[in-house]
Structure formats: C-alpha cells, structure tokens
Design a binder for these strands. Structure first.
Length: 559
RNA sequence: UGGGGCGUGGCCAAGUGGUUAAGGCACGGGGUUUUGAUCUCCGCAUCCCAGGUUCGAAUCCUGGCGCCCCAGCCA
C-alpha cells in the first residue's frame, strides 16, 4: 500500500464508535469481518465495505478482519465465486491472514443453538404452506396472527426438527421459526424463519444437511462465535438489528457483537445490485463478469483500474448513513491521479492519417528521444523512430480552423512532440473530398522540438513513424448507461437505458515501436488517455489495448 | 394511516452550543507548460422549512415537509 490511500487515517462515525469503545474499555481490540455471499462477483460497492472492514483492522492495534463466506443458501452459491472473491480481495491489497471462514463451518453449532431455542420454548416447527405463512404474517399496517402450529410441544418440535434434519420431508413441508411476536410492528420480529428444508448438496458440506439456516439466525451467531466486536453492514439490515440482538440474548452466546449499519455506495451511470449485474452478464448485455464496462472489481481490473485508485476512492467518499450517489468523476479523478504519477508515456495514434514532410530526405531515418515520465527523469528515456512519413491523429488537422485551434491547418506551425516543428502546406483529398494526406515542411533547426530563436509554437501533437509503427486494436469504453441513475426509474426497466455506444473498437491504431514490448502496466498515450493491454484478448500477434480513462480535456469541454 | 432510517453548496463530506461553516470532486477564471495533460493561484453554502430555548444554534427542543428501507422458506 502506498501513496494517497494511507496518507491520512480516515475518520467516520463507525471509527468514532470504535474509538469510544476502546477508550471506555469495552473492547481491548477490534475484530471485524467481511462476509460476502458467494453468489456473484464483487463490485466497487463491496470495495467500500472491504476498505472499511480491513481498513479498521489495519489501523487499530491488534485488530483483525475475518473473511467469511456467508454460504447458507446452496441454491444460489458456487465455489467459483469463492475463488473470484478471494482474488478480488487480495488484488485490492488486503489480507485475511489465516482468518478464512465459512458460515457452513458452524452448521453443527448453529443446529445445536436452534435445538436450544426450541427447548427454551423460543422456536417451533411450523407446517403452514409458504403461501399461508405469508397470509398469516399480516402486512405493514396490520398485525399478523399466530400459526395453528405455534403451540406444539417442545418434544414434538424437537422430533420434527430432527426429522427435518435427516431429510424425511420435502422442501416447504416444515419450517423452523422463532417464537417472538406476530403483532410486532417490525415485521422481522413476526416469528422469522430460522431453518428451512433444502434437499440439495452444499459446496462445502456436501449432502450432510437437508436443512439450512437463514441469514438472520446464522449471521449473528457466526459473528458471536468468531468474537466479532463490530459487525458492519448496510442500511437495509437496520430493521434486522432487533432480531440480531434477540437471538444472541436468548442464546446467551459468549460474545455479543454490535451491529452498525452504513449506507451502500451508489455510482452514477451504472448499476450496483447483484441481481442486475447477474442479469447483465447472463442476458449477454455485457461480456462476462469481467467486462471492462462493469463496476465489478474483475471488470475494473481488466479495464486497467488500479487497486490504489479504488482504495483512494473509498477513503474519499467516506462512510455515513446517508443515501448517496457518487459521481463517476470522483473515481476517475482518483484514477488519473494514480495513473499520472505511475504511468510511462508513449505516443499512439488512434485514428491515423498520413503526414508527409516534403522537405525531409526520402531515405532518412533517425531516432529521437522521449521521456518516459515528465516529472520523473529517473524513469529514463526511450528512442522513437522518425522518418519522412508519419501518422498523426486525423483530428489534429482541420480545414477551416478557428484561431484558437492550436493544431494543423494550412500555414500553421506545430511541434511534433520530441521531434521537429512542422508547417502545414497543403492536403490531398480523395474523390469524396476526404483528406487522405497532410503535407508539411519541417525546420531542421528544431530537432528535439525546440528552437534557438525562441519562436513560440503553441500546439504540440503526437505522431508515429509510418514505417515502424505497430498496429493495434483499441477499445474505448464509455459509461454503461445513458442516464445517471438507471435503477431509480420506476416506470422503465433499467436495461432500456443501456448505452449502446459504451464500447468503440478502433482496429487500425498505430503505436510507437517500443510498445511491442508493452507489459501489463498502464501507459499514458500522450494527449489521449491511459491504456493497458487487455489481459484476455491481447496477444503478440494482435495487440489489444483498453482505454482505462481519458485525459482531462478542458478544450473539448469548451468546443 | 405500522416500524426503522436519513436531510450541510451540483455530487461526496467534516462539523457534537461560540470556527470567516474543513476538505475532495465538479464548475468558472488567471499563471506555468515540448501532453489543450500535469502543476499552480483565485472564485464558488449560513446548514430541508417554521417556531422556540440561549448573550450565542448547522449543532438543543417542538411541529411540519421530503427522501430511502421493510410484508423471501434471499442475503
């Protein structure tokens, strides 16, 4: 970890609570946990939680953060996701040491605790249908009513529960419920489910179980077993806290963690729910979980985002209980800051057009020197081949250019970066009137891009040597959705707002020769943006680069 | 019309009775610049509303208003 992400210790209401707990002696140290359900890939919203939980573990003396897979629903979970999640957490720069757990590690204890509840008369086996249970639950304004099975004897309940466990019943036949209060204003307290029958095998426990615990029961008990001090979760679980506390109080667990809720991260122009991400991936709207347009950590990693930038982002957005939608520009700014500091520069022409220097010798070739990083001379220099015919960016020539256009137009002089001053003389067009060649003359006295006479040249453009450039494909990504908050439109499906121009593929980009040895690092293609090789599609024969993010462009904004 | 939360500038977010109401992003403007990048300088709010308490309130009280979450045998 380096740079911005650890420059200052963040402060937020959760850390304030922890500070107070340590100060008061309530806790000597802190144990947090990051508890993903392995039913999908992690996204930047999870990164917020990861940075919060693991960040606390890093900053407090003796503190530790557990990684716990919340695998209580074998119908939705797969071990493929477990591996992906571990990889993402590691990539983000965090380490769970040997504190890797699964809720399924506790299935035995969980069951014993359930039996204890039954024996205490605090849980019962209900045999109502799912439909009836819903009916009996009441609604937001009306209380529910007791199930006719609510007063079964403890003996009968134990017997039924044991048989549920053995797999004697079909799914839905019975359900273990907490006996609390069917008239509670908090619907979560209206005899919530504890164990349901699922006759399916589990990635970790195989065919051992026929019943699986519900989140509300499993989560608090798992936290207690692990001695978690502060159990941090998102706002929608606030209503579940009374239940979290009820279970632990009834059970008399050795420890009673404190649940604290904070608001989820929302980012504009994208979606963050697992359900929607699943839908985008499975519906073929994007190409897999690691599609560079997705806010998944694997997608962002493939796109070229750095872990450093994401950590910095998480610390900048803060942690509160307020609903929020963070602008993408904050993330992009974190990225640019990190990339500007660490990326080597290169010259690459995305939309090439020939530039011919009429007064440059036909057969001459020379090597010019370019700095790898303008602020870090220690990063060295590289040689860039130069000759009579170059490629420049099509957009760097304009026929009827306004005064403020600092690039090429007839009679205007510009600097070729690291090379020479050239003055545009004329252009050649095809039968349709499209410019096919830009012609110019160069000033041999300006080698390296500077002149002795102190003459001012406002514009500098990038170029590559036509003969020695290498061809590559470049994928330019844009926001996935056309509107800032696609998920909030009540009337329309969010998929209707997908931006069908979210990726633009340029197949004939010309890169400076040194890029044939490109690593998997991110490069700044000068005046364009940051790019990195696509880790899955780029090969030695066919280079493919992803545009991570553009450079800030105040000129384009005005124009 | 049940319960639980939340409301500080365009977006995040400090602030916990006495501060010119931090900071970041965005935005506008100036300077530097062999990337119209970077860097740099400057500008940019009286705190949802209304009453009240107080010498003094974004911070305390009362009453409104607005937004979010909850009726899975999902997490």
């Amino acid at each position: 970890m380096n740079d911005k992400s650890t420059e200052h210790i963040p402060s937020n209401f959760i850390r304030n609570i922890i500070d107070a707990d340590i100060e008061s002696g309530k806790h000597q140290t802190v144990i947090t946990r990051f508890p993903p359900e392995p039913n999908g890939y992690l996204h930047i919203g999870h990164a917020k939680s990861i940075c919060l939980n693991f960040g606390i573990a890093q900053d407090y003396k003796g503190a530790i953060c557990h990684l716990r897979f919340d695998d209580t629903n074998p119908g939705k979970e797969k071990s493929e996701y477990i591996d992906a999640i571990k990889e993402d957490v590691r990539w983000l720069g965090f380490d769970w040491d040997d504190k890797l757990y699964h809720t399924s590690d506790y299935f035995e204890q969980l069951y014993l605790y359930a039996v204890q509840l039954v024996k205490q008369g605090k849980a019962y086996v209900d045999s109502l249908s799912a439909e009836d249970i819903r009916l009996y639950r009441g609604n937001l304004t009306e209380p529910g009513k007791n199930s006719p099975y609510r007063d079964r004897s403890i003996e009968e309940n134990i017997d039924l529960l044991e048989r549920m466990k053995k797999g004697e019943f079909a799914e839905g036949e019975h359900l273990l419920r907490a006996k609390i209060d069917m008239a509670a204003p908090n619907i979560n307290m209206r005899d919530p489910a504890i164990y349901r029958i699922k006759n399916m095998s589990h990635p970790m426990t195989g065919d051992k179980w026929h019943i699986y615990p519900m989140y509300d029961f499993a989560h608090c008990v798992s936290d207690a077993i692990e001695g978690i001090t502060h159990s941090l979760c998102t706002l929608e679980f606030e209503d579940h806290r009374p239940l979290y506390d009820w279970f632990l109080d009834e059970l008399g667990t050795p420890s009673h963690p404190q649940q604290i809720e904070f608001s989820r991260l929302n980012l504009d122009y994208t979606v963050m729910s697992k359900r929607k991400l699943h839908e985008l991936v499975e519906g073929g709207y994007v190409n897999g979980w690691d599609d560079p347009r997705l806010p998944t950590l694997s997608g962002m990693r493939r796109r070229g985002y750095t872990a450093n930038a994401i950590r910095d982002f998480c610390s900048r957005i803060g942690v509160t209980k307020k609903d929020n939608v963070v602008e993408m520009s904050v993330l992009e700014n974190c990225l640019r800051e990190d990339l500007d500091a660490h990326s080597h520069r290169a010259l690459a022409v995305l939309d090439p057009i020939k530039l011919i220097i009429d007064n440059y010798p036909e057969d001459r070739e020379e090597l010019l020197s370019g700095v790898n990083h303008p602020k870090k001379p220690e990063e060295g220099r590289r040689e860039i081949p130069f000759s009579k015919e170059l490629y420049i960016e099509r957009s760097d020539y304009m026929e009827d250019a306004p005064k403020k256009f600092f690039r090429l137009t007839e009679g205007r002089e510009v600097r070729l970066r690291f090379a020479y001053y050239v003055t545009c003389t004329h252009v050649v067009k095809d039968e349709n009137g499209n410019v096919t060649e830009v012609h110019c003359t160069y000033d041999p006295e300006t080698r390296g891009g500077k002149s002795e006479d102190g003459r001012k040249v406002k514009g500098t453009i990038h170029w590559v040597c036509a003969k020695q450039s290498i061809t590559a494909e470049i994928r330019q990504y844009d926001r996935l959705f056309k509107i800032p908050d696609p998920a909030s439109e009540k009337e329309q499906d969010y998929k209707e707002f997908i931006n069908d121009e979210s990726v633009q593929v340029l197949k004939n980009c010309q890169l400076e020769a040194s890029l044939s040895n490109a690593t998997d690092a991110v490069y700044q293609f000068e005046r364009q943006g940051y790019f990195c090789q696509d880790r899955v599609d780029s090969t030695a024969e066919k280079l493919v680069f992803n545009r991570v993010v553009t450079l800030r462009d105040s000129w384009a904004k005005k124009a």
